[in-house]
Amino acid sequence: MLDRLNFPQPWLSLLLFTIWQFLSDGISGASVVMGIILAWLIPQITQGFWPERPAFIHAWRMPFYLLRVLGDIVIASFSVARLILSTRKPEPMFVCYPLELEHPLAISILASTISLTPGTVSADVSDDNKILLIHALDVNNEQEVIDAIRTRYEKPLLEMFK
């Protein structure tokens, strides 16, 4: 029993504790105690779902990446809005994107980014984590999409997870 009194995922525990403080109105004794209990309990219960430790090396690059993605999201919604409101028919396309990233967390971050940025939604990952299927709303050719994603999002992620 005593050997279970540890925090297998320290960052997750810290995050859970902080979020709990935000959720409860103001920091008090009760919220701190409850926060510690949750920060211990939830990683214990979900440990089976975390097969390996995340391999962040350059985590400090994350804020820059997030800022860039946030800016792109705003641009993305304007371009999607223009397409929705125009009478022209969209020219959709399924694109197979060959992944260079290997870490599952990195791939899921890239897939989420793709879904939130201009004209693309990630639809599926192949079983061997090598190819990402992307649905593009309105593009001319496949290579354009692949190049844009490679230089804009995958390169920074590769540097973060190397």
């Binding site: 999201i73 705003v74 993305a76 919604s77 999607v80 809005a81 929705i84 969209p90 959709p92 879904s115 939130l116 004209g119 939604v121 639809a123 649905h135 709303l137």
Partner: peptide, 14 residues
Amino acid sequence: FTRLHGPTKATTVG
């Protein structure tokens, strides 16, 4: 598949 684009971007930003 084209409908998927509207809600994921525009609605979330809205």
